[in-house]
Design a protein around this nucleic acid. Structure first.
Lengths: 222, 222
DNA sequence: TGGGCAATTTGCACGATCTGCAAAGTTGCA
DNA sequence: TGCAACTTTGCAGATCGTGCAAATTGCCCA
């Protein structure tokens, strides 16, 4: 159960940045150690996707994944808390971006809903794991209830940060309850995810967000 | 993974109704067998709640639960698919109620949003497991990410039924995409759950639903 | 009331998940 | 090169969850 720890780690922008960066890292090129770590992680996710697509989540054992990726089972669990996490490739999704700060500051338009839309679009446009991989993960998640649940729970984990963000923006006299606004933002994110996935990964995030918002508005006001 | 089977079972209103009801059942009193089954199930849930509240989800073993409830481990797994399910006490939540039928038929008001509100309120007012138990389960779920995931997964299971319900209502020319409407209904349910839990279980479901809807509307139209 | 029938419980064996620990292997850097 | 820090790996072990068959229990009818 590393979730809480991960959430705490988010305060650091890039986990690989040590207190004292090495020369290689300062030069922009990551050290061999870090490159290997990322490659292994990616290889594990890739192998997991491939096998699960072929055989289904329950028919694939961690052992098989590790064999395919060329690492030991123990190493697998150094990278992921569970088999499911390897499919989803969950990484703390930094909510500390320029877009987030701008939202908190009251921008970019000053209109809450429009700015929520911007925020969600920006977040979706900056996935922490590569569009390809994300698309496969979503595809699998929409077929395996357990994975979808994990994904939703993972989003719930970010709720705290989101509430904080909304509170920063709304200040001391919120016209709306921050938790409802945050919950709505997450729903918006999820719905857009699903629509984007249903569209076969085509189109840009902002367009999908806008379309979902339009739908909801007409649902709530017709 | 019994979920799909459970979903199929929903078509039968009450699982204990055999093809041929016994005399005792016809008389209103359940047979000893059925009474024992329910008592055991309740005892298991109660023991699980008590132990998990005291020691935390991960520190409680199924063995300990069974010892406390006086049944064998194997029996535990005859009742629940997993330890988590025992905490949540998940039971198929019948979506085949009068309220559901009325919604599908276009009632009670004829206005989609208002009727969604009615539907959600009705569903929440008719919990399949007793308010007390439901409150404890929610309380624990909001603390344990894994439980939250299970809970969300369980709700996802009902999505299919919900989509079907919405499709029945909207007919051949839906003004709104059924899946978005269904997703919104589930969001509404979840948000109301959370608000109800945050309020310490006080108040009536319809009031909470109405309050959430009011918030959302003002958020989307201000 | 007793016995057949069906549902339920239980013990047991087994495969899979996941963790802690310490040894062995790699990388970074002076 | 050589030390320090990090990572991988094997191994033992706790727990979870399932299939199977025997024992138990409730149900119903003669």
């Amino acid at each position: 159960m590393l979730h809480l720890v991960q959430q705490a780690d988010v305060s650091v922008d890039a986990p690989e940045q040590d207190e004292r960066p090495t020369l290689a890292e300062l030069a922009g090129a990551l050290g061999l150690r870090e490159r290997k770590k990322r490659a292994r992680r990616e290889a594990l996710i890739e192998a997991t996707h491939r096998l699960v697509e072929r055989d289904g989540l329950d028919a694939v054992t961690v052992e098989a994944i590790c064999e395919a990726a060329g690492v030991s089972v123990r190493t697998f669990f150094n990278y992921f808390d569970s088999k499911d996490d390897a499919v989803l490739g969950h990484t703390p999704w930094p909510l500390r971006t320029e877009a987030a700060d701008e939202f908190a500051a009251g921008g970019p338009t000053g209109h809450l809903l429009a700015d929520l839309e911007h925020l969600v679009a920006a977040v979706l446009d900056d996935p922490p794991m590569g569009r390809q991989s994300l698309a496969r993960a979503l595809e699998l998640a929409s077929r395996e209830p357990r994975l979808l649940a994990k994904h939703l729970a993972w989003m719930e984990q970010h709720k705290g940060q989101l509430v904080e963000l909304v509170e920063r923006r709304l200040g001391d006299e919120p016209g709306h309850p921050p938790d409802v606004v945050a919950a709505f933002a997450m729903f918006l994110t999820h719905a857009t995810f699903m629509r984007w996935d249903a569209a076969g990964g085509q189109g840009r995030a902002p367009d999908h967000v806008a379309s979902v918002v339009r739908e909801l508005r007409s649902l709530l006001t017709d």
